[in-house]
Amino acid sequence: MHTLADQVQVRRGFLSPKTTGYLVLYSVVIIWAGFALTLRAISTSGLTTADVALIRFAVPVLALLPAFSSRFAEFKKLRLRDVLMVLCGGLPFFFIASAGARTTSAVHVGALVAGTAPLSVSLVYFLIDRRRLPRRQLLPLSIIIAGALGLIIAQPAGIDPETLRGIGYLLVASLFWGIYSVGLRSSGLDAIGNGIVLAVGSLVMLVTLMLTGVVPSHLDSITLHQAVPFLLIQGLGVGLLSTVGYAFAISRLGTAKSATIGSLAPALAAILAVPFLGESITFSTAISVFLITVGVILSNRSAT
Score class of each variant (00 low, 15 high):
residue 151 L to S: 07
residue 107 V to W: 00
residue 234 Q to L: 09
residue 145 I to R: 09
residue 138 L to H: 14
residue 88 C to L: 11
residue 132 R to I: 12
residue 213 G to V: 08
residue 156 P to C: 09
residue 157 A to W: 03
residue 288 S to V: 02
residue 285 T to K: 14
residue 282 T to N: 03
residue 205 M to N: 08
residue 198 L to G: 06
residue 189 L to I: 12
residue 135 R to V: 10
residue 2 H to T: 09
residue 95 F to H: 03
residue 19 T to F: 06
residue 198 L to D: 01
residue 73 A to T: 12
residue 148 A to D: 02
residue 90 G to W: 02
residue 212 T to V: 12
residue 204 V to D: 00
residue 25 L to M: 09
residue 6 D to V: 14
residue 250 I to S: 09
residue 260 T to F: 11
residue 200 V to P: 01
residue 79 R to G: 00
residue 160 D to W: 14
residue 220 D to F: 07
residue 62 L to C: 13
residue 62 L to W: 03
residue 242 S to C: 12
residue 107 V to G: 10
residue 209 L to C: 13
residue 256 A to R: 15
residue 177 W to R: 05
residue 153 I to R: 14
residue 131 R to V: 08
residue 284 S to Y: 07
residue 259 A to K: 14
residue 255 T to K: 15
residue 121 V to D: 00
residue 208 T to R: 04
residue 192 I to D: 00
residue 247 A to L: 04
residue 205 M to Y: 05
residue 7 Q to C: 06
residue 190 D to K: 15
residue 112 L to G: 09
residue 93 F to C: 04
residue 268 L to M: 07
residue 133 L to Q: 12
residue 244 V to E: 03
residue 72 F to D: 00
residue 292 I to P: 00
residue 233 I to E: 04
residue 155 Q to V: 04
residue 188 G to S: 07
residue 276 F to Q: 00
residue 266 P to E: 01
residue 89 G to Y: 10
residue 244 V to P: 03
residue 174 S to V: 08
residue 166 G to P: 06
residue 96 I to W: 04
residue 247 A to Q: 12
residue 236 L to T: 13
residue 242 S to E: 07
residue 129 D to T: 08
residue 138 L to C: 06
residue 115 G to C: 04
residue 49 T to V: 15
residue 136 R to Q: 07
residue 143 I to V: 15
residue 276 F to R: 01
residue 99 A to C: 06
residue 287 I to K: 03
residue 204 V to W: 11
residue 130 R to C: 00
residue 54 L to K: 15
residue 172 V to M: 12
residue 95 F to G: 00
residue 274 V to C: 02
residue 133 L to F: 08
residue 278 G to E: 01
residue 72 F to N: 03
residue 33 A to W: 14
residue 16 S to F: 11
residue 27 S to W: 12
